[in-house]
Design a protein around this nucleic acid. Sequence first.
DNA 1: CACTATTTAATTGTACACAATTAAATAGTG
DNA 2: CACTATTTAATTGTGTACAATTAAATAGTG
Lengths: 149, 149
Amino acid sequence: MNYDALKLKNQLCFPLYAVSKEVTRLYKPFLDPLNLTYTQYITMMVLWETDGLNVKALGEKLLLDSGTLTPLLKKLEAQGLITRNRSKDNERNVFIHLTDKGWNLRDEAVKVPEQLIRCLNVDPKDAETLYILLNKLLDTGICHTSHEE
Amino acid sequence: MNYDALKLKNQLCFPLYAVSKEVTRLYKPFLDPLNLTYTQYITMMVLWETDGLNVKALGEKLLLDSGTLTPLLKKLEAQGLITRNRSKDNERNVFIHLTDKGWNLRDEAVKVPEQLIRCLNVDPKDAETLYILLNKLLDTGICHTSHEE
DNA sequence: CACTATTTAATTGTACACAATTAAATAGTG
DNA sequence: CACTATTTAATTGTGTACAATTAAATAGTG
């Protein structure tokens, strides 16, 4: 039998997985001074853009579920960056709001993307192509249900 | 101040992170019958290609360290797919060898890549471009030390 | 209105992922 | 050879990820 399909070099998914991990690691020295992990950082990014989301809406934007978000949000709350309040209108919803400290952190965080780009040795044209292809995959390429026929 | 650099939509790294996670999730239904997680699967792939590596060499191919690999390899050993033997030549090295059961699993695993491609709705040309760009990043784009100047 | 179905967040359990440390073995050096 | 430095795997501790379940609240329906 021909096992070439199983060679690591022939996989698309392995470099995807590996690059993603390595890039996340690259963020660490820039995020450590902000006391944020990468996942906490992108969570704050969503809130800086749209404050006052509930856990479900946050999860839809980040593609994370409550099993990941609940403990993460508790840590951000413990740091005094956000508040978590169960809605009185509908007690199923927990709404997340930035505190003053959370808003202020934005001025530090705004430097991070450029710091990272400088660290990531990538041709701008390649970055643009990657951006387009990855978002195309996110929008239409990843079917959650095709195996359940 | 202009905070556009902090918008999730303007990030390259977020879709990278999100696509990687989603694709790993896509593998699950195809790997469950083999009793493998995604990380265990790519570890077996390396061994099917090059049996008898030590933990360090495995880690270099997979970009994983012993903190991840040691418990993972113990699970593969517990399943009877591999053996872990400390070398007598140099007792620092632990060499990993496939068992018969480990080799036999290859015939099941060989179906997985095609199953996944069918599930992943991606234009072959796009896949090719992604493959090239991601490997280019892996080879030259990710500097571990540039922030320590 | 009673009852079922759905929604939402939290919890539980398993499995990475990685930094930092540890411990043992080996290599290198004067 | 003695001693230090390096190498290798394992361990420890923290933080995701996610499937599956739970529990409470709310929506939908006859």
